[in-house]
Every structure is written in C-alpha cells, then in structure tokens.
C-alpha cells in the first residue's frame, strides 16, 4: 500500500525548505582547513583547523567551546572576514566571504572600543561614516543605548566606564547597523560572574528583538548552554567538531533553567567531552 498523502507532504516540505522554514542556512563551513605559517622558520605549519564542518542557521545562537588553541577564534575570524580558509569552503548566505563588513558585526573580548571616542561616538562611528542620515542613526543610537542600559553615559569615554559597560557599548555598536550575523569571541570573558549573567540575559533580550544569527565563543560551558540553541565542542590539534548538542529550551530562558535537569544533563555531557579534549591537547604538548 502506498502512503500517498505522506509522500506528498514530504515533497512539499522539501520544496518549501529553502525559502520558508526558519532553518535557512546562514553560515556554512564545509571541510575548512586553516593552516598558519610556522612561527619558527624550520617548524611545521600550524594546523589550526582541519576539515571543519559546521552550519549555523538563520537566527540561531550557536556557541563553540573547547580547549585553548583549538581554533575557535580562527573559525570566527574567518566568518568575520579577517582571515581566509586555506582549503574548503566557507559561505555566508551561499556566497564566499571576501572581506569584513557591517553585515557581520563583531564583539571582541576587550580593548576594541576607540578610546578617543566617547560612548555615543563609538556606537555611531560606523553607521555615521557609511552616510546614514543623522536623525536616523541618532534615533537608533538612543533606542539601543536605552536597550543596553547606558543612558546617561553617552558622553563618557571608555576609560571612564566599567568593563561590563564597555561590553554593552560594543554590543550597541554591533547592533546599530542591524547586522544579520553577530560574532562574539569570549565577549564576557573578562567580566565577573554577576555581570556576566546580566549580560547573557541582555543578549537574549536583544536577540528576541533583532533576531540576529549569533556565533558565540566561550570557555564557560554554563554560559554556552544558557544562551545557545546549539553548543559545539571542538577538539584540539587539529581543531574540529567533537560534539554537538542541541539545547531544546525555548528562549527567553529564566534563571531556573540553570538548575533544571535538562541543563545539568547537558552540562555533564559537554563537560565530559571538554575535559577529555583538554587532557588530550595537554598531552600533545
């Protein structure tokens, strides 16, 4: 007996896939290698990434965790356009990435605000120099400044505000161009525990409003699970994906999620792999 309706439905689904479903592919690494010239003249090349396969879908939040030196920043820098893959293909919306651009905003770990510009100037620098009308970018800036809780600090210079506030400025600066992709390399790594949680919640709130695709690098497994739809664990030498877990908890997430069974189960699973990889990478040294 043939199951006509079911086959029809699956065909419909196949056709509709690429256009309508929210699982549109945004960033696709396929078989990406990244080799760096050896720091010493005689040594071998550094194999930072070998055969990396990773897909990030539109509006998805994906975190990468893994031991130090496993190539997390290398992967993110290639998406940003700072570096090109040695082999393989890396595509954004199906097109090869050639150079950095405001469609992919980057939040750096630290020291990436311009110290000679105040908070408002830092936030509006990019959008302003791209020729957007003043009323327009000022309106967006005001909205974002309120959203990240920086009102009253517009005229402060980066050295006059705390580390947490500096990261808020970076986030506002990144979001003002309404980027489709947000790349964050250990953005909260230097913050204390309390501030970190506030920033994670802020990030989820902002995600709800702007729905960017987020690639997030962290050393903190708790942070990764709390904010992500998917957590990728990378292994070192050479860097590649070791474990991939989906976090099936709707966003926004309350703090209760941190103590739920789902959470602790995932945490256990991820930590085990991370630990194993860290030991392996240590042994390789």
């Amino acid at each position: 007996m043939t199951t006509q309706p079911a086959a029809g439905a699956s065909r419909l689904k196949e056709q509709g896939m690429s256009v309508t479903l929210p699982t549109q592919e945004k960033i696709v690494f396929s078989q990406v290698d990244k080799l760096f010239a050896s720091p010493s003249k005689t040594g071998d090349q550094v194999r930072a990434l070998v055969g990396l396969d990773l897909t990030v879908h539109k509006s998805e939040i994906v975190s990468i965790v893994g031991p130090t030196g496993c190539g997390k920043s290398t992967a993110l820098n290639m998406v940003a356009g700072f570096d090109a893959p040695t082999n393989g293909s890396l595509r954004l919306d199906g097109k090869a990435i050639v150079k950095p651009g405001p469609d992919r905003a980057v939040v750096f770990q630290q020291a990436a605000l311009f110290p000679w510009m105040n908070v408002l100037e830092n936030i509006t620098f990019g959008i302003k120099s791209r020729g957007v009308a003043k009323e327009q970018y000022m309106a967006s800036a005001e909205k974002l400044i309120r959203a990240v809780g920086l009102n009253g600090f517009e005229k402060h210079f980066p050295y006059q505000i705390s580390g947490g506030m500096q990261q808020r400025v970076q986030i506002a600066r990144a979001l003002i161009s309404n980027p489709e992709v947000l790349l964050m390399d250990e953005p909260f790594g230097a913050l204390d525990y309390q501030t970190r949680i506030l920033m994670q919640q802020l990030l989820l709130e902002l995600w709800r409003e702007f729905k960017p695709t987020i690639l997030f690098i962290t050393h903190d497994v708790t942070e990764a699970i709390y904010i992500s739809d998917r957590v990728i664990v990378m292994g070192a030498r050479p860097g590649r994906v070791k474990l991939e877990v989906a976090v099936e908890e709707p966003k926004p997430r309350s703090l209760d999620f941190l103590t739920s069974e789902l959470f602790t189960g995932l945490e256990h699973q991820i930590l085990e792999t991370v630990q194993h990889e860290a030991t392996a990478s240590h042994a390789a040294h």
């Binding site: 940003a80 356009g81 700072f82 150079k99 950095p100 651009g101 405001p102 992919r104 905003a105 980057v106 750096f108 020291a111 990436a112 605000l113 311009f114 620098f125 990019g126 959008i127 120099s129 791209r130 600066r173 161009s177």
Partner: peptide, 15 residues
C-alpha cells in the same frame, strides 16, 4: 595601530 582597532573599523564598514 593595534589590529583590534583596524578590525573593528573594518567590520563597521568604515571607508
């Protein structure tokens, strides 16, 4: 000039 500043400028789409 620190690479971080130049990269930040590049991702901001500055000419």
């Amino acid at each position: 000039v620190p690479i971080a500043y130049r990269r930040a400028a590049a991702t901001l789409g500055v000419s």
